[in-house]
């Protein structure tokens, strides 16, 4: 993953249904994001932001278009689900609106499991998980179950989990929706710190306009169309259908 471009999407189109039930959720969305760049994706509900994340996150294959992550063409033609899953666990971190922790694992185990899935020895994965939780200020709650954590704590554990595999790409879908403004801003700043320190590309779908100054690039999305908003480092090309 030495390509300076962390992510490149080209002509990304997602169509659900067909005939008179056809819904175009994403129209020729193209984006280029460098390593270490923090990108915000704004737009009203139903604009296609989550669909874009699912396509980029190799969860939902696009109808047309390509996704290249770290120089590897991932979504173009047949790739086995196993390949995509392997790539996800090694290179992508996810943070979602709801905390999405595994309910039967403690906070530290929720983070540790990612390390173990990429083949780290248990002790190494556990140490790394503890470091991340400490760094995010929830180290003292490491052995609590998710139901024993507040919403903010849960979200920080989710962020720690997203960082556990040292990803080249973090996809976050409204990660601060469940947090107060202070906590929300802390999370956004955390993404920026991680991105800048480790060269990780972070794409955040957000409605929170109070923390937009944290982002390097801002995109807007409406009716499946992706377009850049004013941003000092935007290098996006937006193709309209």
């Amino acid at each position: 993953m030495t390509d300076p471009l962390a992510l490149e999407t080209s002509g990304l189109t997602k169509v659900y249904g067909h005939g008179h039930t056809e819904v175009v959720a994403l129209r020729d969305a193209s984006m280029r994001v460098r390593r270490g760049e923090v990108v915000a994706l704004l737009g009203p509900s139903g604009a296609g932001k989550s669909t874009f994340l699912l396509c980029v996150g190799l969860i939902n294959p696009p109808t047309r278009g390509t996704v290249t992550i770290g120089g590897q063409l991932m979504q173009d033609g047949p790739r086995s689900l196993g390949d995509l899953r392997r790539f996800r666990r090694e290179h992508i971190g996810f943070v979602f609106q709801k905390s999405n922790l595994i309910p039967f694992l403690s906070a530290i185990e929720n983070v540790q499991v990612v390390g173990e899935l990429i083949g780290r020895p248990t002790s190494v994965a556990r140490r790394r998980a503890k470091e991340l939780l400490d760094a995010l200020g929830v180290g003292k709650r490491a052995f609590n179950m998710p139901t024993q954590l507040s919403g903010g704590e849960q979200q920080r554990v989710t962020v720690a989990r997203a960082l556990a595999n040292q990803p080249s790409l973090i996809l976050a879908d409204e990660p601060t929706a469940a947090l107060d403004s202070v906590r929300g801003r802390q999370v956004m700043e955390l993404f920026r710190d991680v991105a800048h320190r480790h060269g990780t590309c972070v794409i955040v779908v957000t409605h929170d306009h109070r923390a937009l100054d944290v982002f390097d690039t801002i995109y807007e999305m409406e009716d499946g169309l992706l377009k850049p908003a004013a941003s000092p480092v935007a290098e996006a090309t937006v193709a309209h259908a």
């Binding site: 196993g82 899953r85 790539f87 996800r88 999405n100 899935l117």
Partner: peptide
């Protein structure tokens, strides 16, 4: 839901 989550974070079959 946890199973879907495990798949999402790339847990092998």
């Amino acid at each position: 839901h946890p199973i879907a989550l495990l798949k999402l974070i790339g847990a092998p079959t």
